[in-house]
Design a protein around this nucleic acid. Structure first.
Lengths: 345, 345
DNA sequence: TTTTTTTACGAAAACGATTGCGGGGACACC
DNA sequence: GGTGTCCCCGCAATCGTTTTCGTAAAAAAA
């Protein structure tokens, strides 16, 4: 099956003009007479002519499309970010190509190369949990591909970054648990190679220290695959529960981790918050109908996507090489619900 | 900023060969001597040569990419379908371009035209809630663009379709509620122009009739925007609750509608299932941690995406025009949880 | 009338890759 | 030595568009 569209050549033939004349007429060049211009425009209109973007890309060297790599779109945080990206891209007439790394280093490499070879004009990326080395991105960046990092970022590549205030979000979440009277607060988080992991861990630790608590490394569990593998989370949770002094609260550092933990505590019939209080990082719009409703650190996902896209487009459309790079930090918001409120116990 | 990649021309120049020789060598043509071939391959390897897909698309007339239009990716059902699409597409080396109609007819039109003019080789689409007229798609289809419909389909365009067994899913959900002793079962559903709405409504009605119940149209509420606008759902629910005989059960026909209804019943402090039982159509992986856990009709979303993609690729890669079209129907599964079980009241 | 300027268009070369065809060179055979 | 056969490789056209440059004809200035 083939998709035949009308080309500039067809118009030229029909109107007994040359291709160049038609091309110029279509773009409203001043070197074309008013009559001819109108004739071409009319014919194009009537025959629903659309310039072939493939040919335009080849000629112009850019494609008016941007690539996005996230670990997983089946996740409220990322799908909201993507909504933000799409809204800006659409308004500036850019195409968005979304791909998923599924937390795999290999897939991240192949996706980024595929996108760059498909001539995207720029890339918006949040690193996979497995990624410890960013040479593949460094290569692309050095060859001139504009890149913006969001959420899971790296400082090895000099370019724009945008993240939530993970430190503060985690700090507030932890302090909230302390204020609820929790004494043994555990932390389940993603791979320790991720920027967000370090930042959130730092906030957690500092809140503990500021409250005069000590830090017990046994209460901190890393999930190398960021919760993509349920068993990994189960394992982490099981280990926490077997500790001589069982935690009385858990602070989970990501969307997937939070729902999985909640679900697992459920099947184990451990009362929340009375036995174990729970605070998660999540952007789920359903967090209020969870059982119990989940206290969570909410990130401004939509804004993050929008601003990341604006930053990327400014990079792409900049005439001269950009040398000043920005690290933008967006504030999070602690939404307090039932899963953390000990007073009702 | 510009992204400079190595081209076939660079290789030709470096090796003192012609472009055509290099091209043929790269593709392993028999007309090229073994030595030359090796030299070219080696050079290409070392300099990380990747053929420019834009140029290839232009030359070959196809782009090895497929377009997807869904109403919203921030929805478990659709993101799972997309995962299915991506998995097949990736394995066949196709690119996937995802767009969202956000239940808007206008956006659906502009997205489909944008995709087709970006020379996607085919389109996978689930119609928006606002769409009552499919002429825009008919046009593209008649011009030769292969299209596969899933979930929200139309029979006005002769091509492959794949849906869940919505009739049976709704029938079983309703019968389940009847078996729980519910007498006044309401139905909140999407726009009545959607195929899924009609099918699910039919199942709901038939189950009622088969159980000797009568059908009361006042118990059936349509949400024209498919739940994208929360107020619309609130309004529908409010009207149901003001009925002289308040429903003792609600069957919601989509993901978004289900969570919104549950959330609203919550804030109104109406006990579920005791006062009102609830069954929804949802693929949320969190349905088991809802409060109460939500009995739901689960669709084989991943499989739907995979099979839709296989059907589309067979259309795209078919040498001769396809005239036999398939309507594939996948079975749903009723996952019974707490929100519908009256016995515990 | 001659020269200059302006207007309005066409020819052709790109962008990067593919492909049919033609031809030069080496070799063997009569 | 002439002819035929392979084997390798290059030329040139092609996909649809953009853009530079050249140039006719018409208009304006000399």
């Amino acid at each position: 099956m083939k998709f035949e569209a009308i080309t500039i050549k067809d118009i030229a033939r029909a109107l007994h003009l040359s291709v160049s004349t038609v091309s110029k007429a279509l773009r409203g060049s001043h070197e074309i007479g008013e009559e001819t211009k109108q004739a071409v425009l009319k014919y194009a209109q009537e025959h629903n002519y659309k310039p072939n973007p493939i040919a335009q890309s080849l000629k112009k060297g850019h494609s008016r499309s941007i690539g996005v790599i996230v670990c997983n779109i089946d996740n409220n945080f990322f799908s909201q970010v993507i909504n933000g990206i799409e809204s800006i891209a659409q308004s500036k007439d850019y195409n968005v190509i979304i791909t998923q790394s599924r937390e795999s280093y290999e897939k991240e490499i192949s996706n980024s190369e595929h996108l760059s070879s498909r001539s995207v004009d720029g890339l918006i990326i949040s690193l996979s949990a497995e990624t410890k080395n960013v040479d593949h991105l460094k290569r692309l960046h050095e060859k001139g591909l504009p890149i913006v990092f969001f959420d899971r970022v790296t400082d090895e590549i000099p370019t724009h970054r945008i993240i939530a205030n993970n430190y503060k979000g985690a700090y507030e979440a932890t302090r909230h648990l302390i204020e609820q009277g929790c004494r043994k607060i555990a932390h389940i988080t993603s791979s320790d190679s991720l920027s967000i992991t370090a930042e959130r861990l730092e906030g957690y630790k500092q809140a503990l220290l500021d409250a005069g608590h000590s830090i017990d490394e046994r209460y901190i569990k890393f999930c190398l695959h960021g919760g993509m593998i349920r068993e990994e989370t189960y394992q982490a949770l099981a280990e926490l529960l077997q500790l001589p002094e069982r935690p009385d609260a858990i602070f989970t550092a990501s969307d997937r981790l939070s729902t999985t933990t909640l679900s697992q505590l459920h099947t184990m019939r451990i009362p929340i918050p009375c036995e174990i209080a729970l605070v998660g990082f999540t952007n789920s719009i359903s967090a209020d109908i969870f059982n119990p409703s989940l206290t969570s650190v909410v990130q401004p996902a939509l804004e993050m996507g929008q601003q990341a896209t604006e930053m990327l487009l400014s990079l792409i459309e900049s005439r001269r090489p950009v040398t000043q790079f920005e690290k933008r930090i967006l504030e999070t918001h602690l939404q307090i619900r039932d899963s953390s409120q000990k007073r009702s116990c």
